[in-house]
Structures are given as structure tokens and as C-alpha cells.
Amino acid sequence: MKKLVLLVTLVMVVLAACSQKKEEQKPAETTANEEVSIKVASLIPPMTEILELIQPTLEEQGINMEVVVLGDNVQPNNALANEEVDANFFQHVPYMEEYNRSNDSNLVPVTPIYFANYGVYAKDFSSMDELPEGAVVAIANDVSNIDRSLKLLDQHGVITLGEKTDTYFTQADIKENPKNYEFKEVDLLMLARMYDDADAVVMTPAYAAPLGLTPKSDALLTEGTDNDFAITLVAREDNVDTEAIQKLAEAMTSDEVRKFLEENFDETAIPAF
């Protein structure tokens, strides 16, 4: 009789364990089928427009993406580093790397999306040769974009840079400045305003567009695509390999996005994929 009781008890324990295991598995199965939500910080078109374009594609794959539009070029990285968003889309890799160095952060590039064709614009002059001696040229004031602006001018022979002795070129590296241009460093978001005040401004199409300017029609000089400054989708080390971020990257490098850029942003946002 004792053996029978023991056998029944053992069977009941096994059945209970199996039942518990099935119950534990159910939430995992449900989670796999649940919609995933991600937040992506951005700034201005065409960045925001690209994200809005791919939202339906992501929804079909079970990813609900919220586009968080922020007001300056510091907030998107802060938000990503603080895990307030899952990715951002507004910057090139050198800018991201400088943020990491300055903030001990672990932001990482996911994939390049487009080249924002950097250019030199002038309200009162139609060529660089027309700029007078000592002309004021406005450039961005963060180290990566100071480097970028000086490289563009060096590329076209406006100035000559010496050997790079640090991570970035600075004004101290200018070895030849034949027309003694004065380079005024201002915040990125102030560049468009400098169009009326400076003799020339070095800026991306995103800041030139509100002024009705394009690289193809209005820039005195342009950068092209032979550089490391493609606008890039950025995530963190801890989430870059997640399925949601990888699907986001796939959607952002689709034929749909390429066609959108080619049809709507000729020479302004050149696909980098």
C-alpha cells in the first residue's frame, strides 16, 4: 500500500512539473508575437522624412517605431546614451566618436544612410574667387565639423593644411591662407543665420535648404562622397545587434529609401548604401 501511495505521489509531482514548464513557456511564446516598440531620435528633414517613410514597413514586421524630434545636435546623443531612446539618426561617425570621447559613452554606428553634401554658400558672391581679402567664413564650432570644413576648403585649394597631429584638424593646422580668410566658429544650428552676416558659410544641405539653397545650384564648392561623413544610424553597444535595430537598419537601406532620396534630394542627400 505504501508503495502505491509513493507511486501516485511521484506521478503527481511529475505531472505538476510538466504543467509548470508549459505555463512558463507560454509567456515566452506570447512575447515573441508581441509588437516591439522602439524610439529613434532625430532632428530635421530628410532624416525625419526617411524615418516616417519606413514606419509602415516596420509595422508590418511587428515593430512600432516612435520618431522623437529633438531641438539641437546634443540632445539625440544624450537621449541615446541615457537609454531614453533606442537609436538616433542625425550625425556622422566622427561626430559620434567625439561624443563618446567627451562623455565616456558607448554609442556605435549601425549603418551609413546618406551623404549630406557639404558646401560653401555666399549671399553676395558667385564664386570663391570673388570673396575679398579677409572675408569672414562661418563654420561649425564642434571639433569634428571644424575638421570637416577645413578639409573641404583644403580639398579645393582655398587653404592648405599641414600634417595632422591630433584626431582632428583645427585652425592651428592651417599652413597657408592666401586671402587671410577669418574663420568664425558658430553652433551648427546658427549656420543658416550666418548666411546674412558672414561673407560665406560652410554647411550641410539640411541647414541650407530652409534658405532655398542646394549644393547643385548654389554652392560655391561641394564635398561629394569621398569622405567619412555619411549621416548614419547610431545605436548603443548593448542593443546594436537586437532584431529591432537590425530590421530598422534594413528598412533604412532599402530600395524604397534610395528611390526617395534620388527623387527628392538630388545631390543634397546622396545614398551611402
Rank of each mutant, 00 (worst) to 15 (best):
Q55K: 15
P56I: 05
E60Q: 13
N100G: 11
P112A: 05
F89N: 05
N78R: 05
K123F: 09
E98C: 02
V36P: 01
N117H: 02
L80N: 01
L51D: 08
D104Q: 10
D104R: 01
N103Y: 04
L107N: 10
T57E: 15
N33C: 14
M96N: 04
S37F: 04
S37W: 00
N100V: 12
V40K: 00
G62I: 10
N88F: 14
A87N: 08
G71D: 15
I38M: 07
M96D: 07
M65I: 15
N100F: 06
F90R: 04
A79C: 04
L43K: 00
E34P: 02
V85A: 03
L70T: 15
L80E: 03
Q75Y: 07
L80F: 02
E60Y: 02
L80H: 03
V108N: 02
P45C: 07
G62A: 10
E35F: 13
P94F: 05
V40N: 00
A81H: 07
N73H: 14
F90D: 12
I44M: 05
E66H: 03
Y114K: 04
N88T: 13
A79T: 09
Q75D: 13
V93C: 06
E97M: 09
E83H: 07
E98R: 09
N78T: 05
E98W: 08
Y114P: 03
N100L: 08
L51F: 07
E52T: 10
A81V: 06
A116I: 01
T111S: 06
G71K: 12
P109N: 12
N64W: 01
F90N: 09
N33F: 14
P112M: 06
D72A: 10
A116T: 02
T31F: 15
A81Y: 08
I50N: 11
P56W: 09
V85T: 09
E35Y: 11
L70S: 13
M96H: 00
N77S: 12
M96L: 14
N64L: 13
S102E: 14
N106D: 13
V108A: 03
L80A: 03
N100P: 12
N103A: 12
E52A: 15
N82P: 00
P46F: 09
A81R: 14
P45S: 15
E98T: 08
M47H: 12
M96T: 14
D124T: 07
P56V: 12
E97C: 03
Y114V: 05
V40P: 02
M65F: 13
A41P: 03
N82D: 04
P112V: 04
L51K: 05
E59Y: 06
V120C: 04
I54G: 02
N103H: 11
G119T: 13
E84A: 07
Q55Y: 01
N77T: 07
N64Q: 11
K123W: 05
I38C: 06
A32S: 10
E35K: 15
P94Q: 13
Y95I: 00
N33S: 15
N100Q: 08
Y118S: 02
N78K: 08
A87P: 06
G62L: 10
A87G: 11
E66N: 10
K39M: 12
F115I: 01
P56N: 10
N106A: 06
S105Q: 08
L58V: 14
E60I: 01
E84Q: 12
S42W: 11
E97F: 00
N117Q: 04
I50F: 02
Y118R: 02
P56G: 09
Q75P: 02
I63Y: 06
